[in-house]
Simulated assay, not measured.
Amino acid sequence: MNIIPVIDANDSLLEAELDGRTYFLNLSWNSEARLWTLSIENADNELIISSILLSPNTPLLKPYRHLSVPAGEMVAILENNNTMIGRQDFVTGIAKLVYVSVDDAL
């Protein structure tokens, strides 16, 4: 399990190696809807999936297995009883974005 760092910004782009492949993860805060979304690009900056809602404690990639998403699973873990992840929750540590590699899932 790898914790993916989320910086204190409304939009961020992170390069991550997930199960041996390079991806670019774009995390965006939508201030009107008060929610986080995730977009994923491959190493060639080709968009794979756009604006996945970061629903807490829910597998994020499972519905998109027909696309070239990372082989493992990504989950936004929220350590309180809220149903949505707040703007500061990643910064304060209440929420964590984690990637569970294929090897870790076995």
Rank of each mutant, 00 (worst) to 15 (best):
M1I: 10
I4W: 05
P5G: 02
A9I: 10
N10T: 11
S12K: 05
A16D: 03
E17R: 15
E17F: 10
D19P: 01
R21F: 13
R21Y: 13
F24I: 04
F24A: 11
F24Y: 13
N26E: 12
S28E: 12
W29C: 10
S31R: 15
S31E: 09
S31L: 04
E32H: 02
W36T: 06
T37K: 06
E41Y: 14
A43W: 05
D44N: 08
D44H: 03
E46D: 14
L47I: 14
I49F: 08
I49K: 04
I49L: 11
I49N: 02
S50Y: 01
L54S: 15
L54D: 01
S55R: 10
S55I: 13
P56Q: 03
N57P: 07
N57Q: 06
N57H: 02
T58K: 11
T58F: 15
L60Y: 03
L61H: 00
K62C: 04
P63H: 09
P63Y: 04
H66N: 09
H66A: 14
P70D: 06
P70I: 02
A71R: 12
G72A: 07
E73C: 05
M74W: 00
M74S: 02
V75Y: 01
A76G: 10
I77H: 04
N80C: 10
N80L: 00
N81C: 03
N82C: 11
T83D: 14
T83Q: 15
T83W: 00
I85N: 12
R87L: 11
F90N: 10
T92C: 08
G93L: 06
A95T: 12
K96Y: 14
K96W: 15
L97K: 08
L97S: 14
V98H: 08
V100Y: 13
V100E: 03
S101Y: 00
D103C: 12
D103P: 07
A105M: 12
